[in-house]
């Protein structure tokens, strides 16, 4: 299993000017990224929606590379979106999934079939032209440049160590520096999108 912080540091070397939706990796990503106006650290607006949000963004911005760090719990909640993404075939969409095998923010309870489910196989069966799975930083770092060079949609399942939180929500450290609304406004300004 990989450390999410180290994994995101490796990705960041190859980011280019991609728009990044860091999902549940956001608390690490906000301290790594050097292009915050091209980031959409949304926290958790409603579980299960990160992939559909990022796909919608990719459809609306076909000239931009959209990179999502989804999670296993989110995917299991809305797995049907994999078929929609495969149908739409957004060539600018790079769908990474952090698989910590549990619901880390609620105390670490396992997701269904945590140890055996093969998300990359599911994505490929849905119609993603490329899907991969990695469980160590060495092979991930060898392959990441090629993954990002080829067109999407691509799905990449990444086994990561869980960052389990067991404190009541109100007493957790707030890692988001901007509101959900503000990060969208900042990205739109960066890209010159009139609303």
């Amino acid at each position: 299993m990989m450390d999410t912080l180290e994994l995101l540091k490796i990705y960041n070397r190859y980011r280019g000017d991609a728009i990044v939706v860091p999902g549940r990796g956001g608390k690490h990503w906000v301290n790594i990224s050097t292009q915050p106006n091209r980031d959409l650290p949304l926290g958790d607006p409603a579980m299960g929606g990160h992939a559909s949000f990022a796909m919608g963004l990719a459809l609306a911005l076909p000239q931009q590379k959209i990179v999502l760090f989804d999670s296993d719990g989110d995917i299991q909640m809305g797995m049907g979106i994999l078929a929609t993404i495969a149908e739409q075939q957004p060539k600018n969409f790079y769908h990474f999934m952090l698989d910590n095998e549990c619901y880390a923010t609620t105390g670490g309870q396992p997701v269904p079939l945590a140890k055996t489910i093969a998300y990359d196989v599911i994505a490929r069966a849905c119609g993603y032209p490329r899907a991969y799975a990695y469980d160590n930083l060495e092979t991930f770092s060898i392959n990441i440049e090629r993954i990002l060079f080829d067109p999407g949609p691509v799905f990449v399942a990444l086994k990561v160590k869980p960052d389990i939180e067991n404190k009541p929500i109100g007493s957790r450290v707030k890692w988001r520096k901007r509101s959900q609304v503000q990060v969208v406004i900042d990205m739109q300004k960066e890209l010159g999108i009139a609303t």
Binding site: P45, G49, H50, F53, L57, A58, L59, A60, L61
Partner: peptide, 26 residues
């Protein structure tokens, strides 16, 4: 028009949010 078919209605709202963030009109 681009048609984006979803398979559960809750996904329509997050999809629409992404499209709107990208400056288009869902």
């Amino acid at each position: 028009l681009t048609l984006v078919g979803v398979n559960r209605e809750g996904l329509a709202f997050s999809t629409a949010a992404g499209i709107a963030a990208g400056g288009k009109t869902p």
